[in-house]
Design a protein around this nucleic acid. Sequence first.
DNA 1: AAAAGCCCCTGGATGC
DNA 2: TGCATCCAGGGGCTTT
Length: 271
Amino acid sequence: MPELPEVEVTRRSFAQAIENARILSVRLGKPLRWPLGCSPEQLVGLQVRTVGRRGKYLLLELGPGGCLLLHLGMSGSLRFASDLPPPGVHDHFDLVTTHGTLRLNDPRRFGAMVHVNGPDDPRARKLLGRLGMEPLSDAFELAVFQAGLRQRRAAIKQVLLAGELVVGVGNIYASEALFLAGIRPQRAAASLSRPRAARLHGAIREVLGRAVELGGSTLRDFSSADGTAGHFQLQAMVYGREQQPCRICATPIKQIRQGQRSTYYCPRCQT
DNA sequence: AAAAGCCCCTGGATGC
DNA sequence: TGCATCCAGGGGCTTT
């Protein structure tokens, strides 16, 4: 379900509320993508200090030590409340705290909740170690982005999705950002001129930033952890619009496959 | 080293 | 109505 904006909006919807809560119990449902990595009892008594984010991972910093890495995968969503109903078949993780219960619902179970001892934990390194720049932070440096593109021959869409240069750009926003930048998704990353790479850099920030402001939009069924529904204001320019007229030039939008994923683009606006 | 495929899993939409 | 097929927001792992 979630790309960076949805993960960030989810984070903001419960980060304050869970801060400094003490863990009372942990309930596990069906297995997620990876095992928790510790016994549920081991978490009892710890405090949730802060909720951060790296790419599409949420990081629940624990006191006095350790961290929970939370990923929503393709279909995951969170709720945080003190009056949750009994868990349903797709509720696979409950973190019961003094401030409420954080519940992970994930029908497809591509999501994960993983306990690590700290940033140097091998599991943390494996999952977070190769992640690229944060697109909405100052760390997203244009020069580094341009240099990174120059050394990759793969299609630009694939490079964005891979997350090793820049994180958080998922399948929907990749198509949207490339449209905004006027760049064809199949184009080799290394073939982008510096000005066009700069345009893409701006487009990524624009698309993701606006989506965060709108409360996680575009996605069909998104709602944040406090139950607020996504707004849907951000209408897609190309994603999911195969055959429909481009909103700029009216040329029919094309759909292609890249790496088993759908890509949409305007054959006239994007070169 | 980088790139391309392969999976993990369930549910909803579509087609016969 | 029932059943088969395809597709879906991710990304780690294995193979080229």
